[in-house]
Amino acid sequence: MTNAASIDIPESATAADYPPIPEPNALTEFFWEGVANHKLLILRCGACGKYIHYPRPICPNCLSMDDLAPEEVSGRGTIYSHTTTVQPFHPYYVDKVPYNLIIVALEEDEEVRITSNLIDYPNDDIRIGMPVQVTFEEVAPGLTLPLFKLA
């Protein structure tokens, strides 16, 4: 799928230079455009108010299709679980292990769960329930991701 929002990276880049790169499609383009502009946008149903993440063309709660729109959220949440990955499963992580992976339950709706990484904090001290705040980091040239810091 050709897409204007496709993330541009240098032609010389190798698999060790980039984590798996999100390839937006018509449903998800808004999310990555938001991230590029340092906004966390979540699709929301205007008819019933439900947040819909990951993006879908229809509201699973009221089946509205025409009234769905991205909405900026606070970026605040709490850690729902976490792990520290020791073994690298992708070339990018060979020199980055151990690294943490967190699941954030979003403040606006704790059923919206976001997979990310916690930065500037020791892996061994991460605990469930810690309050976190989104931050936007360019992890590799041209690739910005929504990461989290302790709030």
Binding site: M1, I9, A13, T14, A15, D17, Y18, P19, P20, I21, P22, E23, P24, N25, T28, F31, H53, Y54, T85, P88, F89, H90, P91, Y92, Y93, V94, K96, Y99, L101, I114, T115, S116, N117, L143, L145, L147
Partner: peptide, 26 residues
């Protein structure tokens, strides 16, 4: 072997675009 067989930067679609870029790969 799987890791080293990755040729060039990997682009990822579908729902995994919300998990794999953060290192959630297995």
């Amino acid at each position: 072997q799987e890791r080293d067989s990755v040729q060039g930067p990997m682009r990822i679609g579908g729902d995994s675009q919300f998990t794999m870029p953060f290192g959630s790969v297995t």
